[in-house]
Every structure is written in structure tokens, then in C-alpha cells.
Amino acid sequence: MGSKNKKIANMVFLLVVFALTLYSVFKGEDLRAVLRAIITVNPWYLLPGIAGVIIFIWGESIIIHYMFGTLKIRTKRWTCFLYSCVGFFFSAITPSASGGQPMQIYYMRKNKIPVPVSTLVLMIVTITYKSVLVAIGLFVAFFQRGFVHRYLEGILPIFYLGVALNVLCCIAMSILAFHPALAKWIMMKFLKILERIHILKHKPERTRRLAESMDQYNATALYLRTHGRVIVNVLIITFLQRFALFFVTWFVYKAFGLNGAHIYDVVMLQAVVSVSVDMLPLPGGMGISENLFLIIFKGIFTAGLLLPGMVLSRGIAYYVQLLLSAGMTLFAHLTIGQKAADKI
């Protein structure tokens, strides 16, 4: 019953955020003018943008398939693509993308993949995913000062907050991965403090479950120490995967027949949006992503095309991704684990 209530709460939260996003973005705007601008675009430029979304999802499936192979687990590439779609769908509709990996583990378990193995693979996927964002954020913050002052003055607090949160997340995951004993000591100490100040009641079962879950990270630490080349390869694939999605905005820009802006500026500005919103507790960064786009791309899209540009860019990068992954998640639900012959 609790799980059902949680799903209902998440759906209500998603709908509320979506409604507020529409209100904040389109309030006082001429929707007919926006639609007229959108229907004038060159659709041939939108096709590579949609392809970028597919490559983005496909990129994670390559990583999952590759890492399962290093662990001697045989999987089908198509099944790994379904795992990726499941992850992106539930990440897109839950706050802070919290629902993605638990659901991936659920469907992997239906295919008889051990939970410790799936947890290990997805932990490394998350570490590399966040590491690429951290690298981009720190590169822009420290080595692109002219770029920052030209485009980001209006969003600097959010940008720096996004960088800081991603750095802290990477540090926390690195402690879990490289120093599991230290991580376990910190978490057990923190649990005791919460019990001592009566925020949590002392429950031996909770303490045992926490200890067991922290022990799982020993496998992550061992894997990272013994598969350095694999991690480098995963980082490279993740970098290409992330930028495939960032390029969507460039293709939207060209679809409007615009010229003058450098491809580097357009792609990096979209990367900045991702860095800024990735750790915020909003489904898919909904609301904040749209408004950040309207602020920092003001000097890129000409007058009258900024809002249509945002609608197309965000529509392809997030909503096309959401619809595609939703369809594939439904297919996964109907097929994964249903036949013994198709276990993996």
C-alpha cells in the first residue's frame, strides 16, 4: 500500500511541476506566434537531434552490456537497451532521478542478474555519469571565465550550486567506492547520532540492513582497483553519450536557419544547463531547465525565436526521451522475465 501511495504522490508531484512549468514559461506569451515559428523550421535538422536522444539512451546500454561482459554475465544488447530506457523513464518522472536505478535493478533481477552485480554496474555508471558533469562544470568555472561573464551572469548562483552539488555527490560516491570501510563507519556513526537525538528509534534490523548494504560497496572498490582500463573506456563512452544530448540544441538552432553563434557556445551552454539542474529535486529538471534556457540563450536565439527554440530543444531532449523510454519501459514490463528462454 505504501508503494502505491508513493507512486500516486510522485505522479501528482510530476503533474503539478509540469503545470507550473507551463505557467511560468508561457505566461503572457503569444502561443500562436510560437507555433508559427515552430512550423517554419527545417525538419531535416531535427532528425539528428532526435538521433542524439537515441544515442544518449543507447550509450548507457553499451556501457551496461560492456560491464556485464567484464563480469562474465551474458546479456543481449537489446535487453540492455531496455534496461537503459527503464532507468531514464523513472529518472525523468521522479524527484532527483531517484527512481531510475531501483527500477533497473528490479528488471535485472527479473532476468536472474544478482542484485550485488547490478548494483555494482549501476554504481559505476552513476560515478562516471556524474564525473563527466563535474569535469564540464569545473572546466567552465575555472578555465572559461570569458564564457561565464558573457553568458552566465544571470544564473551564476544556480550554476555554482549545481557544480558544488555534483562535486559533493562525486566525493560521496568516491568514498563509497574507494574507501568502503570509511563509508561504512561514517554511515553507522551517523545512524547512531540520529538514534541518540531521538530522530530515529533504535532498531537492530535497520542497523543490520545498513551494514549489509554498505558491505556491497567492497565489490565496487575491488572492481575499480582491478579494472582501470574498463573505467577509462566507460568514461569515454559517457562523455560521448552526454554530448550527443547537448548537441540537440545546436540542431534546433540550425533548424531555424540561424547563423552567427559558434557551435561550441551553443553546446556548452546546454551542458551548463544540465550541470546546473542535475542534482536539483525536480523530475527531469522540469521548470528550472526551461527558465535557465530562456536566460542564457537570450544572446543566441534572435528575437521571437528564443521561446520556440526552447520548446523544440527541451521538447526533443526531454519529452521525446520521456515518450521513447516510456514506450520501451512498457515493452520491458511485458517481456523481461516472462520467458525462461529469454532470461538475459
Rank of each mutant, 00 (worst) to 15 (best):
F331S: 14
C80R: 06
L323A: 09
I193E: 10
R36A: 13
K203A: 12
V25R: 07
Y23L: 03
I236T: 11
L305Y: 13
I316Q: 14
Y318V: 11
M268I: 04
R196S: 08
N218L: 11
L165V: 09
A261E: 04
S325E: 12
P204S: 07
V132R: 02
W78K: 15
A51F: 12
N218P: 01
S131Y: 07
N259C: 03
T220Q: 02
K6Y: 12
V25D: 08
V121G: 08
D265H: 11
I55P: 11
T238I: 00
K184P: 00
S325L: 11
V17R: 12
N111T: 10
Q338F: 13
S131E: 04
A97N: 15
Y319H: 15
L182I: 02
K4Y: 10
H333M: 05
P283R: 08
G284V: 11
S274R: 06
P281D: 13
A255D: 01
A341I: 02
R209N: 02
Y129I: 02
V16C: 09
C170E: 07
G146Q: 05
T75V: 09
A326V: 05
V17P: 11
A164T: 15
P157A: 09
A221S: 15
E153C: 01
V232M: 13
I295K: 14
V311R: 03
I64Y: 14
R150P: 04
Y129V: 02
E212L: 05
A317F: 13
E60I: 01
L31C: 04
G69P: 04
A219G: 07
A135E: 00
I55R: 04
G337I: 04
L191N: 07
M1Y: 07
I127H: 02
I55L: 15
G100V: 12
I54K: 13
F88L: 10
R225Y: 00
V272Q: 09
V17K: 13
F239Y: 14
G309W: 00
M103G: 13
G59A: 09
A261H: 05
N111K: 12
S276G: 06
F90Q: 12
I295L: 13
K298F: 04
K201C: 03
G287V: 09
L138C: 01
M286E: 05
L292M: 15
D265Q: 09
